[in-house]
């Protein structure tokens, strides 16, 4: 599987770098091509953080405006997609923090009421749904790392680059997420087999 995927990934990287170079020169076609290639993933990532379609689309717009204006600052280090995710990450977290100061939506339980959430909501849910709910108990910083690792298939260094945190912090956040999620599973007396069912 790895042997087949690797050349495609390398080609994609070269293509992306070419597109960024063209965008830096003001090439509109290259810009549209980059949008077609990555907009869905970036939107999905922003949506995962914000849980709001409109705000996630606003973030996507800002992301591509930034790419258009800052393509000349891309230094060619690492994959282009990691650079794009870094921009989206910053803008989405900024929007998330603004949103958080305005109001805390019901779907985002605060850490203080985790216990209540677990007893009143999660117990009534299906086991798989319980795990998703448990993930919502994590802070946005921990959830984004899980998203980047498992859904976006980013490497450890890329996660560090996107979130602008040291590699050690990536590891410690993953460890913390593991402890919290395992804690919920253990407390609810659910086995991995039951979740898989």
């Amino acid at each position: 599987m790895v042997e087949i995927a690797l050349p495609i990934m390398v080609n994609e990287q070269i293509e992306d770098k070419k597109l960024i170079k063209q965008i830096a020169k003001g090439n509109e076609q290259a810009f549209e091509m980059l949008y077609q290639r990555h907009s869905k993933k970036l939107f999905g990532y922003a949506f995962h953080i914000l849980k709001n379609k409109q705000t996630a689309e606003d973030v996507l717009q800002e992301t591509f405006l930034t790419i258009w204006q800052k393509a000349n600052t891309y230094r060619g280090e690492g994959r282009v997609v990691a650079w794009l995710f870094g921009i989206t990450h910053n803008l989405a977290l900024k929007a998330y923090n603004q949103k958080s100061t305005e109001s805390i939506p019901e779907t985002y339980p605060t850490t203080q009421n985790i216990e209540n959430q677990i007893t009143t909501q999660i117990l009534a849910e299906h086991n798989k749904h319980l795990l998703n709910q448990a993930m919502q108990q994590l802070t946005v910083e921990h959830r984004t790392i899980l998203q980047l690792v498992f859904y976006e298939k980013m490497s450890m260094n890329e996660v560090s680059q996107i979130c602008q945190i040291p590699v050690g912090t990536v590891k410690s956040r993953l460890n913390y997420a593991k402890q919290v999620l395992k804690g919920v599973i253990t407390r609810e007396g659910i086995t991995m087999e039951e979740i898989h069912e």
Partner: peptide, 21 residues
């Protein structure tokens, strides 16, 4: 455990992400 989390995230993302306008 991580495999379970991975699967859960895949399912969650596939089912909950709306389409981009």
């Amino acid at each position: 455990f991580w495999q379970t989390i991975n699967q859960s995230i895949q399912v969650e993302n596939t089912t909950s992400t709306p389409s981009l306008s």
